[in-house]
């Protein structure tokens, strides 16, 4: 057919651009992902499996999971509280608050880690008091938890604030006018409405918590078998020229990344469907 829409490029331009885009993505994203698994299996499957069950690797996996597991509930609680305050009420300094919530995204992870060394390190503000009471934060798990909290806390809030702003407060006001208490309103109306957005934020925060390197690296002290998360363990193995070990550990993280992408896509699809349903709902007068 010789007919061409007015706003379409010639066929050869479209093919060229598509080829450039796909080629770029394949070379730039696809190849590295593939390389992780190829390098991990370079010495054969048995060597790969042996590297995975190595005690220090196992410990690193568990520590990473533990940190994520502790950090996520805090993120959820903070995200919901911040979004509730920001999306449902007007108060002075609201836009400043939103900017402050974004701050950890702008700060270099290394600087983030360093902030806590200045507070809790041996020569930090609270250092002497901590050592007097024999409590370690820096070069120990608590410090890594705090650093991860800092790095990940905007994710849930940033997802929920725009979502709740779009949804509006009508349904919650309706619940209250029908006699619901605060908790009844929250559990029966608010939470079901934001569950997908909440899950989305949790997925992103979880990926970051599991993969965080810079901030955790600064506060961890790299004590093998004690304060090594999986990404830190990858670094140690790599620097010891244990390529198979490093890439075996990296392959676990890469798999988690793929799981994250899949989960994220599913949730995005669900959310998209819900907004579509909602938009289709709006009476014509309101969509004008």
């Amino acid at each position: 057919m010789s007919f061409r829409r007015a706003n379409a490029e010639p066929r050869w331009v479209r093919l060229l651009l598509t080829a450039v885009a796909l080629g770029f993505l394949a070379l730039f994203l696809g190849l590295p992902l593939l390389a992780v698994f190829v390098e991990a299996l370079a010495a054969g499957v048995p060597a790969y499996l042996a590297a995975l069950v190595e005690p220090e690797t196992r410990h690193a996996v568990l520590l990473s999971l533990l940190i994520a597991l502790i950090v996520l509930p805090f993120n959820v609680l903070f995200g919901v509280a911040a979004a509730w305050a920001i999306a449902r009420f007007d108060f002075k300094g609201k836009s400043l608050l939103i900017t402050l919530i974004d701050l950890p995204f702008a700060v270099s992870p290394v600087v983030a880690g360093m902030l806590f060394i200045l507070l809790f390190g041996a020569r930090g503000w609270f250092g002497p008091w901590l050592s007097e009471h024999d409590f370690r934060i820096i070069f120990a798990v608590p410090g890594m938890l705090i650093a991860t909290l800092f790095i990940t806390f905007p994710f849930v809030a940033r997802e929920l604030i725009p979502l709740m702003q779009t949804q509006g407060k009508d349904e919650e006001e309706a619940a209250v006018s029908l006699g619901a208490s605060g908790w009844q309103m929250f559990w029966r109306v608010t939470l079901p409405n934001i569950k997908w957005g909440l899950l989305y934020g949790v997925i992103l925060a979880n990926a970051r918590a599991l993969g965080e390197f810079g901030a955790v690296s600064v506060v961890s002290g790299h004590i093998r078998g004690e304060t090594n998360t999986l990404p830190l363990h990858v670094e140690i193995l790599y620097n010891e020229y244990n390529a198979v070990g490093a890439f075996a550990a990296a392959s676990v993280l890469a798999l988690l990344a793929l799981v994250t992408l899949v989960a994220k896509t599913i949730v995005e699809w669900r959310m998209h469907k819900e907004t579509q349903m909602l938009e289709a709902d709006l009476p014509p007068e309101k969509t004008q």
């Binding site: 006001e173 309706a174 006018s177 006699g179 619901a180 079901p192 409405n193």
Partner: peptide
């Protein structure tokens, strides 16, 4: 508001979108 015994119908209805019609009325 919850103690006023007032029925309020919102301009855009504010039906609970994740509940069935039955559950909306039963709320």
């Amino acid at each position: 508001a919850r103690d006023r015994n007032v029925g309020f119908v919102f301009q855009h209805y504010a039906l609970f979108r994740h509940m069935t019609v039955f559950e909306n009325v039963a709320f």
